[in-house]
Design a binder for these strands. Sequence first.
DNA 1: ATAAACTACTTTATAAAATAAACCAAATAA
DNA 2: TTATTTGGTTTATTTTATAAAGTAGTTTAT
Lengths: 97, 97
Amino acid sequence: MFRPLDPLLHSELRLAVVSLLAGVESADFTFIKEQTRATAGNLSVQIDKLAQAGYIAVTKGYKGKKPQTLCRITPAGIEAFRDYLEALKSYIPTSMR
Amino acid sequence: MFRPLDPLLHSELRLAVVSLLAGVESADFTFIKEQTRATAGNLSVQIDKLAQAGYIAVTKGYKGKKPQTLCRITPAGIEAFRDYLEALKSYIPTSMR
DNA sequence: ATAAACTACTTTATAAAATAAACCAAATAA
DNA sequence: TTATTTGGTTTATTTTATAAAGTAGTTTAT
């Protein structure tokens, strides 16, 4: 009946991050922060979790003299996101789809 | 861009409960427990929260000699569920819809 | 040159949530 | 009559999310 939802993706902020990254080649910390309207602290923690899980790859570099954290979704991340969206459908009554 | 998700509905178990109730006139505790495969303790807590919020109405009665907790979704609950599903769409890239 | 403010984060602390474990009362079965 | 099951609730523990504070360096203004 109801399919389990990957707890790593079933978090408003992490879901937004993955959804955003699913549509772009890569995005940096500041851009993700703006788009999701998250606080830096929260975003930092959630990006870490997604990276730990292998759902995103994080590259720390510099943009000019300033540090830049670049994120991109991984194939595993794309698959997990697809699966999550599939599972989510089991919670949407056909009458409301 | 990303629409906020009602934290009361953005919980796997509460979402399952509301989704289930959206499709039936009413359902009792045991039935909901079976369908969602939740533990009684967890379900009891989550049903309470949904009731507190006015998303569901809970009626305690008896079925024969045994206690029976009947739940039904309220109009406010239906609206909240609709809104949640609408907001959820903002997290689904058009390319993956 | 130096202080003040800003950028780009990370770390740590606190609050809230989910889950599990323990409990309870009544009913039924052995 | 003493287990065992049913139908839950309450309490405790773990996990998660969020906020506050801190770090390292940069830019701007004086």
